[in-house]
């Protein structure tokens, strides 16, 4: 029985050099995930900044009057629509829209995938951070303001450092989800890890070995990612509570 399994493994990975597909596919998966996470974080935090600034300052700005209130209100409304649309449309559909409609002339498939997954993730990251900011006791914010820090300084020195700690576990969730979502990149012809496994299956007519191999690679990646996050979290919490 073990001989049979060994033969299958040889067939699927070694004999025809298909292991190279897995490596290439895995690299593509990592590449897309890493850049999409970066894009998602940057854009998501900007969205969260707008949304939470509006939530926190709505009353004050309204009372103080001026253009600022209407400007922020308008930008906040656009952000809300963006988040609603992104969360309401399946990411496969978004990916295909980017690939076949918006960025149809792009030379790099990977780039299109990064854009699609990054802008998708941003909507979720935005709500994670907004939730985190709103969960910090308002007393922390008021104490900062009462000492003379302005809104941005209070956010940077006092609220955001506490928010980051609070959102890390949820953020990890989002990154794991994103990593696994990239498995649909095959829909637009990108050879990611999943696609590579599927190609090997098609060539060898052997489903079990390549698919299990792909599953294990995803699993190990997620476990390593989790480990990294747990370490960061522990470091950040060392001195508190």
């Amino acid at each position: 029985m073990f001989d049979e399994l060994r033969d299958k493994i040889m067939l699927c990975f070694i004999d025809n050099g298909y292991w190279e597909w897995l490596v290439e596919g895995f690299l593509h998966t990592v590449l897309i995930t890493v850049f999409a996470v970066i894009l998602g974080l940057v854009f998501g935090i900007i969205l969260a900044a707008v949304r939470s600034s509006y939530d926190k300052n709505e009353e004050t700005l309204k009372l103080r009057g001026g253009v600022g209130y209407y400007l922020l209100k308008a930008i906040n409304f656009i952000c809300k629509i963006y988040i609603t649309v992104i969360r309401g449309v399946p990411v496969v559909v978004q990916l295909m829209i980017w690939y076949f409609v918006i960025l149809v002339s792009s030379k790099s498939d990977i780039f299109v995938a990064v854009i699609a997954f990054g802008f998708n993730s941003a909507a979720y990251v935005a709500e994670i951070f907004r939730g985190g900011i709103m969960s910090i006791d308002n007393g922390q914010f008021e104490a900062g303001r009462s000492l003379g820090f302005n809104y941005v300084q209070t956010m940077i020195h006092i609220v955001i450092p506490q928010t980051v700690k609070a959102v890390l576990p949820t953020l990890l969730n989002e990154i794991i989800a994103l990593l696994k979502e990239t498995s649909i990149a095959g829909y637009v012809g990108i050879m990611d890890l999943t696609k590579a496994g599927d190609l090997i299956r098609g060539r060898t007519f052997e489903a079990f070995v390549p698919l299990i191999a792909v599953a294990i690679i995803y699993l190990v990646t997620v476990v390593v990612l989790t480990k990294v996050f747990t370490t960061i979290e522990r470091r950040l919490r060392r001195n508190e509570r």
Binding site: D137, G139, Q140, E142, A143, G144, R145, S146, L147, G148, F149, N150, I158, P161, Q162, K165, E240, R241
Partner: peptide, 20 residues
């Protein structure tokens, strides 16, 4: 107001020390 607040110290019911 930020400049004026520097000169007005405030103490809260729930202390509001910066936890981090």
């Amino acid at each position: 107001i930020n400049l004026h607040r520097r000169k007005m110290g405030m103490v809260f019911q729930h202390f509001n020390l910066f936890n981090n």
